[in-house]
């Protein structure tokens, strides 16, 4: 990962009563929005990166031989599964996963 971001403004010396500013990254993770979870079939994945290209939350992470999803942020929209040319991704209901 090539880091691009510059360190955030240090607001510790700024009165909290002036202009409203935000100087800490939001820690919100939308993984719990998901009712369907993408599951990648490693054998089918050819690392074409279509899933990465279309994933709105950009939760696709590259593994050695396949692409996987970061489930902390995946909202379960299913675009990756729909667009994958290899049909390597399937959307699985969360509760089923939990029971297995």
């Amino acid at each position: 990962m090539k880091k691009q971001a510059v360190p955030l403004f240090d607001a510790s010396a700024i009165p909290k009563t002036l202009c409203p500013i935000a100087t800490e990254y939001s820690r919100m993770l939308p993984g719990d929005w998901r009712s369907l979870r993408p599951v990648v079939d490693r054998r089918k994945c050819v690392k074409c990166a279509v899933c990465w290209l279309y994933c709105p939350v950009q939760c696709v992470v590259e593994r050695a031989g396949w692409f996987d999803m970061n489930l902390a942020t995946c909202k379960g929209c299913g675009i990756c599964a729909r667009e994958c040319p290899q049909r390597a991704i399937s959307m699985v209901p969360e509760e089923d996963e939990e029971m297995t």
């Binding site: 971001a5 955030l8 202009c19 500013i21």
Partner: peptide
């Protein structure tokens, strides 16, 4: 050089 959100 000193990123922040102004008026969240």
């Amino acid at each position: 050089k000193r990123p922040m959100g102004v008026d969240p």
